[in-house]
């Protein structure tokens, strides 16, 4: 059974939004809308692994997207590809049978449920990367209800990973 069947995807998004704020990135990250440009996610990924998500990579993410959903989607596609490549090339694992986030819905409609899936993939990078201890310890300091959702999200990802 899918462990997230009993968890609201929107609740997942809210909890992961709280988690994303622990990275203290430059760009505002208080609301779902703040994240739909992809800029925050790119900055978080660079903190997770600055050697892989280097300046060359992040410079391809446009920062001044305003309300232009086409630019947002373009950014989100690059980020999703970056996450999947990172899993394959650095973490040595593939994510199978996981419904990938619909970046069109995130960019055009600020869909919290799809954004939750995207943040879930970033969470997977954080708890598997070289510096994972730092990120896991930060999660363990968070409110219990958030920790619970984060745990369920990680468990779902782990059930879809294959070496």
């Amino acid at each position: 059974m899918n462990p997230l069947e009993s968890v609201d995807r929107v609740e997942l998004c809210e909890s992961l939004l709280t988690w994303i704020q622990t990275f203290g990135v430059e760009a505002p990250c208080k609301t779902v809308e703040d994240l739909t440009s992809g800029v925050v996610m790119a900055q978080v990924l660079q903190k997770i692994d600055p050697s892989y998500f280097d300046d060359n990579w992040i410079n391809r993410i446009k920062t001044e997207v305003g309300d232009n959903w086409r630019l947002k989607i373009s950014n989100l596609k690059k980020i999703l590809k970056g996450i999947l490549d990172y899993n394959h090339e650095v973490l040595g694992q593939q994510i199978n049978d996981f419904t990938l986030p619909d970046v069109n819905l995130i960019g055009e409609h600020s869909d919290a449920s799809e954004l939750g899936r995207m943040l879930q993939l970033i969470l997977g990078c954080a708890v598997n990367c070289e510096q994972k201890q730092e990120y896991i310890k930060t999660i363990m300091m968070m409110e219990e209800s958030v920790q619970h959702v984060v745990m369920t999200a990680i468990q779902e990802l782990m059930s879809k990973e294959t070496p």
Binding site: V90, G92, C129, E144, Q147, M151, I154
Partner: peptide, 30 residues
Amino acid sequence: DPNMKGAAANEGVLANFFNSLLSKKTGTPG
């Protein structure tokens, strides 16, 4: 108090999970 017991059990589950994650080897060779 059953509520307190439940909270403590939940805390234990979370701590076990994240501690096992901490000790899990990463995908890097070596």
